[in-house]
């Protein structure tokens, strides 16, 4: 118990770091994921190919490797950003591949006739997707997107190894100060639970409000 009460600010900073990483990387992943899902069902072949490559590369690369690529690779091209921005980029892009596939599976649950009706009225591909298909797909993708974002919150721990302040990284300092490893980790776990259970709760609300009634 002392570990927590003596180190409020350390834990607090760590938790804040994790929340920041999670929120910004989630937003990036959602935006990119939906765009890529749109690409993957587009009538234009080159967009489809781009979406497929995006998903294949990012989904099949270990996240740690991606962190190395972004944090060590991008500065070589003269792109110098704070480490936590790099971490958000890596996490967001990685997770966008999973979001993309969840959204695409949702698109596939919308009956073909819905898109045909929209197109027969003269709506363009973008209008059909935005006004007819995605709003209906959205309802079915709430649960898998929730799971993916929970995974993102936990994956953010990797950023700690790349000098980004986040929750898991606090154990190093605590360890040096001589606190019990077990208690340090227990409170870290509680911190992650706070983040992941919040995401769960948020998606439960979304599902109650928007989900498909059965």
């Amino acid at each position: 118990m002392d570990v927590l009460t003596h180190n409020w600010s350390l834990y607090g900073k760590g938790l804040l770091g994790t929340v920041e990483l999670t929120v910004f990387a989630s937003l990036l992943a959602l935006v990119l994921g939906v765009i890529m899902a749109g690409f993957r069902v587009a009538p234009v072949g080159s967009l489809r190919a781009f979406g497929t490559v995006w998903v294949t590369v990012l989904r099949n690369t270990p996240l740690t490797l991606l962190f190395f690529a972004v944090l060590l690779g991008l500065p070589r091209f003269g792109l110098a950003l704070p480490f936590n921005v790099f971490a958000i980029l890596a996490l967001g892009c990685y997770t966008s591949a999973f979001i993309c596939e969840a959204v695409r599976s949702g698109i596939n649950t919308v009956p073909v006739g819905q898109g045909e009706a929209a197109r027969s009225l003269g709506m363009t591909f973008g209008q059909t997707l935005g006004a007819v298909v995605l709003p209906q797909a959205f309802r079915t993708v709430i649960p898998p997107v929730g799971s993916t974002l929970i995974a993102l919150a936990k994956n953010s721990a990797i950023a700690g190894s790349f000098s980004v302040v986040e929750l898991l990284g606090t154990y190093k300092t605590l360890n040096e100060l001589g606190y019990s490893i077990i208690w340090s980790f227990l409170w870290i776990a509680v911190g992650y639970l706070i983040v992941t259970l919040t995401i769960s709760a948020l998606f439960n609300v979304l599902e109650k409000r928007w989900g498909v009634a059965r």
């Binding site: 009956p111 006739g113 045909e116 027969s120 009225l121 003269g122 709506m123 209008q127």
Partner: peptide
């Protein structure tokens, strides 16, 4: 396509929109 209307066997009304919105959507978008 906007100049040729189509009516389908399975209706294909937009399931997430009201009847009014179904009819008004395409004129607004297109």
């Amino acid at each position: 396509r906007a100049e040729v209307g189509m009516v389908f066997q399975s209706f294909n009304l937009f399931a997430h929109k009201t009847v009014l919105a179904n009819v008004a959507l395409a004129p607004m978008k297109v």
